[in-house]
Amino acid sequence: MQIVGILITGIGVLFLLLGSYGIVRLPDVYNRLQAGTKCTTFGALFTIIGVGIMEPSWFWKTLIIALFILLTNPISNHALGRASRKSGIPLCDRSVVDKASEFEQYKGKV
C-alpha cells in the first residue's frame, strides 16, 4: 500500500513540476492557461489521492479536497481566459486561426 501511494504521489508531483515549467516556457496567456491550470489540476489530484492511499484513515477527507479542486479550477480557468480575451490581449505570432470575430455574429442572430 505504501509503495502504491508513493508511486501515485510521484506521478502527481512530476506533473506539478511540468505545469510550472510550462508557465515559464510557453509564449502567450492562453497557452500558459493550458499548461498552468490543467497539468496542475491533474497533478494536484494525483498528489492528494496518493497521500490518502499512503495513510488509509485520511482517504475520505483527501477525496473531498480533490473534489473541491476538480470543481473550482475549471471555473477560475474559464474566468481568466474570458477576461483576457475581453481585455484585448492578442494571440502569439505562432497561432494558426482566430475565429473570435466570426463568433461574435452569433450573438445578433439568436
Partner: peptide, 18 residues
C-alpha cells in the same frame, strides 16, 4: 500536453475555433 512542453522545439499550433 506534457510532451509538448518538454519537447525542445515546442510543437504547438495554437488557435481559437468555434
Amino acid at each position: 500536453v506534457a510532451y509538448r512542453v518538454i519537447h525542445p522545439k515546442m510543437p504547438i499550433k495554437p488557435g481559437i475555433i468555434v
